[in-house]
Design a protein around this nucleic acid. Structure first.
Lengths: 229, 229
DNA sequence: TGGTGTGAACAACTTCACAGCG
DNA sequence: CGCTGTGAAGTTGTTCACACCA
């Protein structure tokens, strides 16, 4: 086991490994080699072994990894041995969809509070039983419900304002669905999920596919800057 | 200008620069230095200059970058000089929220088709004017509407099946909101948006905050494997 | 024998530091 | 003078290749 810095990408991969392992476990498969798992997850097998080696020795030489055991260990590494309480701020279309989304609960994430500023929405009971509270009660309710992570689903313009309230509570984890750069004091952990950034990457890749790969005709590559023409 | 390989991360940053530049532009600011933009985007200023240098020379020495001009250039690099037509497959909570979400339209992404298998949903007219079509008509409608990118918002179990249909059309770009590993032939571009992967990263980071940073008491670090105890 | 765990080689990406230009 | 553009240095992350062990 090494105590060197662990690449952030390794953590993302651990998360993907759990998906694969859960799938395999549900098929009643007991053991898997790094080679096979690598194929399934579309990564290099040494990468898997190295990712795991950051945290311990979980495999059996000549055999592979016991799936149930490895799942347990990875979940422990990720901190999924406990339930995480989420509060969501901004109950527009996206906020409502997120609350109703089943994947969160499956992985041990629970929405325990929801907030909005719109008086028409406040008090409404959501499908999961919680009701929408006014933003002014953020602090009180988050402390009461022991919220770990704030999920920001407000419009971009309101996000920083909300974050400023959140960092006073203090909730150390923020998941930001708004397309805005957030500034937080040191010690807070922010992750972004920005749909249009992903779309932009797709647009870029699609614009740059070699012509042989393209399904339809296309004009000049858009990246040939005017400076070069 | 260099023709070396361009880091994928550079493209993601370009996308974030556009956000910042649009913000600055709306404040009627005309020029910005890489230093200032870097501060705003929370990256190194050399990084910005290098990212841009992959594609051309857009700055003025001793001055900085003209915001409107740079915005135009980056959008061209990303392929945002054209509109992109999206089809969405799976009209559950998430699918509906995505269609209603305003950020897509703002950046030149248009939903032109929506699909589901549920007979109750088929035919329903959505807020943006399009109606939900049966999945069986995927190929016909996508060709008709010149769809560029398929957005997968089905449950995990259905995603690969849908992707197999999509790759026959052929639509080369796929944005996958389901938490499943997708397999596609070469030449197709897939990006994932997996909420729980991001939450897992948050959970990991929060579990591993140094005690001095922690808001509440905590037991043993979960990553100390039993092998070490 | 077969597959893990890991040092060493390699590759990719980021930052530094400064030449060169407006 | 100030700020861009960029080679070179530094850092980080990935893959190889094999010793080692069940």
């Amino acid at each position: 086991m090494k105590f060197s810095r662990i690449p952030a990408a390794a953590i993302t991969r651990l998360s993907r490994y759990t998906r694969a392992l859960e799938e395999l476990d549900s098929q009643n498969i007991k053991v898997i080699s790094s080679e096979k798992l690598a194929e399934y997850c579309d990564v290099n097998s040494a990468q898997i072994r190295k990712d795991l080696a950051y945290f311990g020795e979980f495999g059996v030489r000549g055999v592979g990894y016991f799936i149930k055991e490895l799942l347990f260990e990875i979940k422990r590494i990720l901190g999924l041995h406990k339930e995480w309480n989420l509060a969501i701020i901004g109950m527009g279309n996206l906020g409502c969809a997120l609350i109703a989304h089943s994947n969160f609960a499956k992985q041990g994430y629970r929405f325990v509070a929801a907030f909005d500023v719109d008086p028409d929405k406040i008090g409404r009971i959501l499908p999961n039983g919680i009701s929408i509270s006014p933003l002014s009660e953020l602090k009180k309710i988050c402390l009461e419900k022991e919220v770990d992570i704030a999920v920001i689903a407000t419009p971009a313009g309101k996000a920083q304002e909300v974050v400023n309230m959140v960092t006073e509570i203090p909730i150390r984890g923020i998941l930001n669905f708004s397309p805005s750069q957030l500034h937080v004091p040191e010690g807070f952990v922010v992750h972004h999920i920005d749909f249009t950034v992903k779309l932009d990457r797709l647009a870029y890749r699609l614009s740059h596919l070699r012509p042989s790969d393209r399904p339809r005709g296309s004009d000049n590559p858009p990246w040939v800057s005017k400076h070069l023409l």
